[in-house]
Amino acid sequence: MTVLEVKNLRKKYDEFVAVDDVSFSIQEGEIVGLLGPNGAGKTTTINMILGILEQTSGKIEVLCENLESCRDKVGKDINFAAVYAHLPPNLTVWQNLYIFGLLYGVKNLKERIKELLKEFDLEKFKNYKSGLLSSGEISRVNLAKAVINNPRILLLDEPTASLDPHVASLVREKIKKYAKDTKSAVLWTSHNMKEIEEVCTKVLFLSHGKILLSGNPKTLAQERGKNDLEELFIAVAREPLSLQ
């Protein structure tokens, strides 16, 4: 079943086209990597799916409903974590999870928070103010917030950017398990190509707002005559025209 479908999405700021005719879909349990150099349009795409940026044209469908017209209905099925989205630093970890749990209308909220604190190894920090946590700890709090409502669509913008390899690996495992267990669709951006190869079932390479390449992360590089995804990424950034 298709959980997220993006059709001909376009975002134009005056004369600058940030996202240009982007179309893709994500099925149940699928983790799709959205890749590309800085300024390629990854975050712009994510922000439009989140509903905090209005598209110039195109359509976003969540569980077969038009996001623009049914945001009230499907809004509770979407959540996200991003390195640039901060939780209020003066609130404790528990308070933050509680407030966002209320906003997303989570049932049995206190039980859900207990589960998440345990799952993300945050129990000892539950009464710590979020602003006092290390970047790795706050990333885990962000991820706990991102799955608090068991979203059917999880958008992760560089979720492991500030984590050490050990914690990053644990997070990858948790997200993979989450997608599989809940049959959720995950859209994942990262600049860590090994991570993408490990986690994603499909990748989309964006360049100048357009999808330049898409395919299986394990085979796409070879199909394009490159040794690995990292080499392909560099080629996308340096000479996108040669790959069209």
């Binding site: 996200f80 966002f100 906003l103």
Partner: peptide, 18 residues
């Protein structure tokens, strides 16, 4: 301003909050 200083708008407006 609290929400401005904590850069928290994205979290609020990406949630179902109207």
């Amino acid at each position: 301003l609290e929400d401005v200083w904590t850069r928290n708008f994205i979290n609020y407006f990406a949630s179902p909050l109207k």
